[in-house]
Amino acid sequence: MLAKRIIPCLDIKDGRTVKGINFVDLKDAGDPVELAKAYAERGADELVFLDITATHEKRKTLLELVEKVAKVLTIPFTVGGGINSCEDVAQILKAGADKIAINSSAVRCPELITELANRFGSQCVVLAVDACETQEGWEVYLNGGRIPTGIKLFDWLKEAERRGAGEILFTSMNHDGTKNGFANEALAEISEMLNIPLIASGGAGNMHHFADVFTKGKADAALAASVFHYKEIEIPELKNYLKSEDIPVRL
């Protein structure tokens, strides 16, 4: 049976791991290569690296990091942050990443999704989206959740799928950093609407939240950062718990 995936997310700044709480207040959480290895050994199913500096000058640092990670890691990993072109993607994949995640650049130029899917295959194109629920419904935000776009979330996700995105990484800004659980209602709606895998992000606080995101939220994978980095939740324990709840996981 296809297992539900547990994905630690490592936010990278200047080659180090940090975690933003509600996208600000960065705190050093260690060496990315060591963390990546440790997570793989403890049963993480995949890793996501988000480069939150992603300035032009720091690009080389990121590529060196991707290569170092690829050499030691035996599981798939995704790299996102500041990716604007086919050339950026070619470099990251060549350094050894398995997938890339695009967010703001795809909103600004949806054609980029089509180009990347055609050139590298849908399987390596993850469309990441930050969205906020207001009285008008779910709206897409840019730049790590700072700029509202007026774009309706569900319309955007349908377009992304049509253009060839292979997977969706959805972060609810209403839930991110709260540790009160994932946006299960919206997730379930998205998961049923789309025919590509859905990674849920934002709101993980305890093990029950993970069970809920797979059952109520119908997500295919769940992503979290600080609960893993600060060992509030240990992955082997989490997976044993999910298994006891009859949720298929890789042990």
């Binding site: 049976m1 297992a3 199913d45 292979g166 997977e167 789309l194 895998p197 295919d220 994978a221």
Partner: peptide, 13 residues
């Protein structure tokens, strides 16, 4: 067949 999500992506037995 489009009976479930495609691609088949992830860990399977």
């Amino acid at each position: 067949p489009a009976e479930d999500k495609v691609p088949h992506m992830g860990w399977n037995q």
